[in-house]
Design a protein around this nucleic acid. Structure first.
Length: 135
DNA sequence: GCCAACGTTGGC
DNA sequence: GCCAACGTTGGC
């Protein structure tokens, strides 16, 4: 089981949109580092759903429901994607500020490189974030 | 193949 | 709205 963090602008595609759809496809990634992370995902992996922009915070947990897909919006047929489904909304959202303030999360990929839209999360980091969420 | 210029993303 | 970080493009 691997853990990830997936970032989205809530105005473009937010947690509520995913819940309404029941399953979402994570298309539109055109960044090699993020794409490599998408390729490394396996069905059953868990990811934090993170809202970027104003008041950036992790809001929910999703599960990878299909992995190893090709982005249907990609004309070249090369960029990867996955499908995710919502598991649960966090009891309390975890702000980027709170993550940055936690010494256990000092090496978190998203803290170190804010522009990465799909980032790995270590198991210890995952647990630390859930603790911050009051889970 | 290097590097400067430019564009985009995302936090503040 | 600004700026830092990063990626991409294009001239040489």
């Amino acid at each position: 089981m691997n853990y990830w963090l997936m970032k989205s602008e809530p105005h473009e595609y937010g947690w509520d949109d995913l819940v309404a759809e029941k399953e979402g496809i994570w298309d539109g990634v055109r960044n090699h580092q993020a794409a490599n992370n998408l390729r490394a995902m396996e069905k059953g992996d868990r990811a934090l759903f993170y809202h970027s922009g104003k008041g950036p915070e992790a809001v929910g947990i999703v599960e990878v429901s299909a992995a190893g897909l090709i982005d249907p919006t990609d004309e070249t047929g090369k960029w990867p994607t996955v499908k995710v489904k919502p598991i649960e909304k966090l009891a309390a959202p975890v702000s980027l500020k709170a993550m940055k303030a936690d010494p256990k999360l000092a090496d978190l990929a998203i803290v170190r490189q804010s522009r990465l839209s799909v980032a790995p999360v270590r198991e210890a980091e995952w647990k630390a974030i859930l603790a911050l969420a009051g889970e």
